[in-house]
Amino acid sequence: MRSQKKKSRKWLKVTGIFLLILVIGGSAYAFTVYKSLKNAVETMHQPIDRKQSEKREVPVAFKEKDPFSVLMLGVDERKGDKGRSDTIIVLTVNPNNKSVKMLSIPRDTRTEIVGKGKEDKINHAYAFGGIPMAMDTVENFLDIPIDYYMQVNMEGINDIVDAVGGITVQNDLDFTQDGFHFIKGQLTLNGEKALAYTRMRYEDPRGDFGRQTRQRQIIQGVIQEGASISSLTNFSDIFASLGKNVKTNLTFDQLMDIQKNYKEVGKNIQQMEIKEQGTKIGKIYYGLVSADEKQRVQIELKAQLGLN
């Protein structure tokens, strides 16, 4: 009986801004993809000098299927500017209930900046002290351990979107940004248009919340296009774009452990938002979060992470 060779193609959707990991097995072509993937992840890997969180008694063990958290920062690194983390999303991943909770934190949220000894906008933490200070500040604000980070250069969105051949989004607001007019309805965006689509904030009556919605649409669009079979021929461009624009302290081996032990979580992504009241202090706009609202969010995230 003649045996038939079977090729298995499966995309690992490591939930985060544009981190698409392709796992293919069973052929010389698969080995080429695997090697390209590993090289890209090694380029993305950027460890940080930060002690384990005091809110985490023992390190996360992916092989034991421990719940964990990832801080995703979208940084607008324009020429001559270190950049601020204008996109702040916290992912809490729990393989036991097979879910991911995605919390968007508005960039103007007023909170203590850990390491600076003062209150300021939460997105200033990155400008003051880079990834470690941003992680410490978000961890203090939410009272949960922040285990890993993923940083995306927002200027690189166009490269990533173009690498997957463009994306489709469902736009719910008619607006113009950076010379592009976006009508309501289904839109197909190339990289340049996608970047403009994520930047608009002032014309949106929802302010930062509307902008966060569009950012999540871009993330989902990239994942959907990247996961299509047609994108397999573009794997080199996709991995090159990720290597240039994404940084994380997750290693290749850790990502492979996630792929093996957390396969089901990507099917159940739940969006969370934190409510705040806008006000001006010293002529500067801030978003203030009430004690009750902060406690509500903290309780939900602690439950997701299996913490008391």
Rank of each mutant, 00 (worst) to 15 (best):
M200S: 05
Q170C: 02
M272W: 00
Q170E: 15
L250G: 02
L189Y: 06
K283W: 01
G243I: 08
D237K: 14
N268V: 13
S230H: 13
R214Y: 09
D208Y: 13
T248M: 06
L173T: 01
S236G: 08
R216V: 13
N245K: 04
Y262D: 00
T176V: 09
I269G: 03
Q220A: 14
E293F: 07
F235H: 11
R296S: 15
G226L: 05
T168H: 10
M200C: 03
A240E: 11
I167L: 07
A196L: 09
V222H: 02
T279M: 11
V289R: 01
S231W: 03
G210K: 05
K280H: 07
S290T: 03
P205V: 03
E293Q: 12
N249Y: 08
L250Y: 03
G191H: 07
G207I: 09
E192M: 06
I258W: 06
F239K: 01
G207C: 12
D292I: 08
R201F: 10
Q277N: 08
D178R: 08
L173Y: 12
N249I: 12
V161L: 08
Q177T: 07
K263H: 10
R201W: 07
S231M: 05
T198A: 08
R201P: 07
E273D: 13
G278A: 14
Q170F: 10
N190E: 14
Q271T: 15
K267E: 13
S230P: 03
A194H: 02
I223N: 03
V265C: 00
E203R: 01
K184P: 00
N249H: 05
D208F: 05
Q177N: 10
Q224T: 15
K263T: 09
Y286K: 01
Y286H: 02
K283D: 00
E225Q: 15
Y262G: 01
T251E: 06
E225M: 14
Y262I: 09
L242K: 03
S231Q: 13
S236Y: 11
M272K: 06
N245C: 05
E192N: 09
Q217L: 06
Q277A: 10
K283E: 00
Y286F: 11
D172E: 14
V222W: 10
N171R: 08
G226D: 03
N158T: 13
N190G: 13
M256F: 14
V297S: 00
G226E: 02
K260W: 10
Y285I: 02
D204I: 10
K263F: 11
I229F: 12
V169M: 07
I160K: 04
I229N: 00
D237N: 14
A291I: 07
Q177E: 15
Q271Y: 12
T248H: 01
R211T: 08
N158M: 15
F209D: 11
I238E: 09
N234S: 12
V161T: 07
F175G: 05
T188Q: 10
I229Y: 13
K260Q: 06
H181F: 10
R206E: 14
K280A: 04
G179F: 12
S241Q: 04
V246A: 06
Y197T: 07
Q295L: 15
N234T: 08
G191V: 02
E293T: 14
E273S: 12
S228Y: 06
D162M: 05
R211P: 10
Q212R: 04
Q220I: 13
D174K: 08
T233H: 04
R296T: 13
A227K: 13
R199L: 12
L250S: 04
